[in-house]
Design a protein around this nucleic acid. Structure first.
Length: 590
RNA sequence: GCGCCAAUAGCUCAGCUGGAUAGAGCAACAGCCUUCUAAGCUGUGGGUCAGAGGUUCAAAUCCUCUUUGGCGUACCA
């Protein structure tokens, strides 16, 4: 809606510029020559809502930008359609105050009507988009790195959906391979029949314990690795005993990981298992060989030459005919497209694998799959600690469950310290939701592409630019509106009138609400949830200042109260809608 | 070596399809709770936007080079 207002003024100004030019006897379309007007925002709201720099017109119109602005302002002011004071010349800029009153009126109608779907767009309407993320190994519990992956994957799925896409969230469980056998082997040797139930250890942590145990054992026993390899061979031969243990331990891990997903607010539409898919892709490689897309080395391994995309050669099938990571990914992509013909497939995977995906997409293209150009690697940076990289050998890996638990207990302590136990209701539930919001927001704030530093001390602080701060605004508004419910019967004779919303921050809030849908669209185009987190913080900060400075329910005039309640109601709706896109639970009270 | 990515306040990050004095949070300091939840609000200090060139009326933003850091360049996933 804000876009339309911008567009309106841009067109109006451009028309007037054309008029000015032709009055001066200039030939041709001045807008075409100088370029379309750029719409900016003035440095502060007192200077206007929109700013049009007129530098580019100086040369074409042979006049200083200042003079052009002055003339343009006069022309605009002479029009009946331009209200007094709407246009403000400011040096080389022509600033415009938009009509936030009528904007607020139409916004109110729209938000009232659309409610939780306010902000949704049609930009991806009808597109089938698959998002693959998380993809954990079944030999250990999730850590901080997975949490960033999950947060981005989950959020981007919501964002795409909000823009009209038909989204499928998929998880590919890495349950096969030598690393899985290592934990199995250690369990066989040292486990003594321990189970999650008998030990009281969460399944994924129990399996992780034996993965660590293996590493220690490997140092003492030089035959360890060959034993693990032997176990993998048995697994591939379908050895019953090995398969039984494999299934058992997989169940433990996956059950554990699902509990973590539940805590952190992550879910999937479909699970794939590597054990089912690792054979896929071979046929396609052989077919490609027949078609001359690939070539066979003397040792009979199959390769592709990547000279076209300025890369080296890459092996696709081992000399013994077994498949590789790449082979498998080729197979799964093709299989997925057959099962659910997507318009695009987004892989949420760490930036370390950029090369892999470049090759994967190229190979699929060479195999003749048109849709290969609609594959996208949503690459995200590493999560580091203040002292550097996380290293499992040094025990600095931040465990997902531990982190979530400590966030939850801190939130709980905070509620108790503030004496809010009675108001919040289920304190455990609320504490978990605060923890979830804090974590998700912390991880989604930086642009995905960049490496980030996870500072444990910062992450557990609930002050300042944090998830709980955002939740707090929602809770404050909710409690305000609850009070309004009790008093609103005295206001039935008063209609909403947006002309009572004139204070600076009211105008700011109106503009932000109006801008929100275009940001939802932008977040999808950029595959960037931080567009939404930044917006949420801006909106919250502005609102926080606003209700601190201006009484809502205790405003002087009744008309003002009605208008402000309506505005605040809209702010709450937008907050809720945006929370949903970035994994922040809404709290009625906190 | 080659390739990809990054570099903004003491720390963590926004801003990057070029536009007005580069913004937040944390940390430091100073204020504000008989008034809609102080998980809050206000203010002060803090910047050669890594460096050098270039393009432009205008560069943190675009281009080139340099420096520093991360990642990759496996018949691992």
């Amino acid at each position: 809606m804000y876009q339309q207002v911008k567009e309106y003024w841009k067109n109006l100004l451009e028309d007037q510029l054309r008029l000015m030019a032709s009055e001066k006897g200039m030939e041709g379309d001045v807008v075409q020559t100088a370029g379309e007007l750029v719409v900016n925002t003035p440095p502060n709201p007192e200077m206007g809502d929109l700013a049009f720099p007129l530098f580019p017109y100086a040369k074409v119109m042979r006049n200083s930008p200042q003079n052009i602005v002055k003339e343009l302002a006069e022309k605009l002011n002479a029009l009946d359609t331009v209200p007094e004071g709407a246009v403000l010349p400011s040096g080389p800029y022509l600033n415009v105050f938009i009509d936030t009153t009528s904007l607020a009126s139409s916004l109110k109608e729209k938000v009232d009507a659309q409610k939780e779907s306010y902000g949704h767009t049609e930009t991806l309407s009808g597109r089938r988009m698959m998002v693959e993320f998380s993809c954990p190994n079944t030999n250990k519990p999730l850590h901080l790195g997975h949490l960033r992956n999950d947060a981005i994957g989950e959020s981007i799925s919501h964002i795409l959906k909000a823009n009209g896409a038909d989204v499928q969230k998929v998880n590919l469980i890495n349950n096969r391979g030598i690393h899985i056998c290592k934990s199995m082997l250690a369990y066989q040797k040292f486990g003594e029949g321990e189970t999650p139930d008998s030990s009281g250890i969460k399944g994924d942590h129990l399996v992780g314990k034996y993965y660590v145990r293996y590493a220690a054992w490997e140092k003492e026993d030089p035959t360890a690795l060959s034993q693990a390899q032997e176990m993998l061979r048995k697994w591939e031969d379908g050895d019953e005993e090995v398969l039984r243990l494999w299934k058992l331990m997989n169940t433990w891990t996956i059950d554990g990981i699902e509990e973590t997903y539940k805590n952190t607010g992550v879910s999937f539409d479909t699970y794939y298992y590597e054990s089912d898919t690792y054979m896929l892709g071979k046929d396609k490689i052989l077919k490609g060989l027949e078609d001359g897309v690939f070539y066979r080395e003397e040792d009979s391994s199959i390769w592709i030459d990547l000279e076209e995309i300025n890369l080296d050669k890459k092996v696709l099938l081992r000399k013994d005919g077994t498949s590789l990571y790449l082979t498998q990914d080729i197979g799964t992509a093709i299989q997925r497209h057959e099962k659910w013909p997507f318009d695009s497939l987004i892989y949420v995977v760490a930036s370390e694998q950029a090369y892999h995906f470049k090759v994967l997409f190229h190979v699929l293209g060479k195999l003749g799959y048109q849709w290969a150009e609609n594959l996208y690697h949503l690459s995200y940076g590493m999560v580091n600690l203040p002292e550097g990289k996380m290293k499992s050998r040094e025990g600095t890996v931040v465990d997902a469950d531990d982190l979530f638990a400590s966030l939850t207990s801190l939130a709980k302590e905070e509620i108790i310290a503030k004496n809010r136990e009675a108001e919040v209701g289920d304190i455990d539930d609320v504490s978990e939701k605060i923890a979830r919001g804090a974590l998700s927001y912390y991880l989604l704030q930086p642009s995905p592409m960049k490496d980030m530093v996870f500072n444990p001390a910062d992450s557990i602080s609930f002050n300042g630019n944090t998830g709980p701060y955002l939740q707090y605004m929602g809770a404050r508004i909710s409690s305000m509106l609850a009070k309004w419910e009790e008093m609103k019967s005295d206001f039935t004779d008063i209609d909403f009138d947006a002309s009572h919303l004139t204070v600076r921050d009211e105008r700011e809030l109106i503009k932000m609400i109006a801008l929100y849908p275009s940001l939802v669209a932008q977040a999808a185009v950029e595959y960037n949830p931080s567009v939404i987190t930044s917006f949420l913080y801006d909106l919250s900060r502005t609102f926080s200042r606003y209700y601190h400075d201006h009484a809502v329910l205790k405003a002087e005039k009744k008309e003002q109260i009605v208008a402000r309640v309506a505005l605040v109601t809209m702010v709450l709706q937008v907050l809720k809608n945006a929370y949903g896109l970035v994994g922040i639970p809404f709290l009625q009270s906190m």
